[in-house]
Amino acid sequence: MSLDLLLQPFSYDYMLTALWVSTLIGAVCGLLSGFITLKGWSLMGDALSHAVVPGVGLAHLAGLPLSLGAFTSGLLAAAAMSFVKLKTPVREDAVIGVVFTAFFAFGILLISLFPAQLDLKSIIFGNILAIAPGDVAQLVAISVLCVAVLALQWRDLLLFSFDPNQARTLGLPVRRLHLTLLLLLSATTVAALQAVGAILVVAMLITPGATAYLLTDRFGRMLVLGSALGAFTAFAGAYASYFLDGATGGCIVVLQTLGFLLAFVFGPKHGLLAARRARRRLCLVAPAVAP
């Protein structure tokens, strides 16, 4: 492959936009993914990313900003989940499953009823290569807002995730922190929807964080690392998708998963090989102890 071909993506305006917007979204999702994985909200991320679909559809039909519709429907779903959880003895994961699939099905129903106005593929798989300038502006606004909130509140959110009881005894506004995290999750979901689509958003919101978690024992470093991983994989995935005729979301997420697997095997302290080495060392020191 010649250098010309490798540089070709950069000669198109739409590719340049796709590249920097993906990188931005990857960085923001990566930053938040640290909180999502540690709070144990992976399923929540999955659920919200599916639940925003009807909002996107309705907003599109009504000519409103997509973010507004997506955000509203995501929050409605979250409210429905907490309401049902409060009212029934059904396990939380089942409640989340029931609610988000219902929302998603409603979205699919809308798409099937208005095939001319709603493009199934771009909602389900994202379409960053054809993103409109207005959407870019929305994404930038969302990203700046999320980064600002996280920069100001990350220590409080850390304590809230780690030990909510302690947060309460210190008089921190626990309920507000919970809501903040939920709002951040919904906002980034809306952003990531454009890049990778409803089904793969959850990967953007957990994989970089999970990977970083395997590489460090410090929370601050984990956030930075997750953000960097998210940005890099999003950039590289968008770049690769130029040569693969689309499937930007697929490329980004495949790269993120590869990153996770690499960290899982080769991680310096928590990797598979490191753990094996540590076990062997233990056996050498104390041969009497069975492995």
């Binding site: 991320g45 994989t207 997420v253 495949v254 590869l258 996770f260």
Partner: peptide, 17 residues
């Protein structure tokens, strides 16, 4: 749940590509 999310999205993305 995180591992599961990572694995299934990875496989799904692979399928898409």
């Amino acid at each position: 749940d995180t591992v599961m999310g990572v694995v299934f999205t990875g496989l799904f993305a692979l399928g898409l590509v």
